[in-house]
Amino acid sequence: MKSLADLKALRDQTKKRLDLRDGESDYRVVVGMGTCGIAAGARPVLNAFVEEIAKENLKASVTQIGCIGMCSYEPLVEIYDKEGNKTTYVHMDANKAVEIVKKHIGQGIVCENYTIGAK
């Protein structure tokens, strides 16, 4: 059974990892979590981004946003680079999220086939 006492140790470990990975984020990942997004399956997409970014130890933040206004394209994810350029990925799922983390966030290659333009 887990207890909150264990959380302190985990926190210290995480802190060490974060200190090593200095500097600001290269990418900002924004996941649409309005009613439409959640109903379409945005939760596993969000979690896949968070887990994969940590696994690959990449510099990117993941945040939630409400309805972006293109409900029929949900789950929807926007990725901003340091210069503020936006890529919009549509009809997302957890597998696509893993691929996008590896290519887009890891190597800077946009996964064109998942973007809104490809639809």
Binding site: L7, L10, T14, K15
Partner: peptide, 12 residues
């Protein structure tokens, strides 16, 4: 408990 570490960090 977390202080300056975010709840959103994957392992947390």
């Amino acid at each position: 408990i977390l202080g300056d570490v975010s709840i959103a960090e994957a392992e947390i």
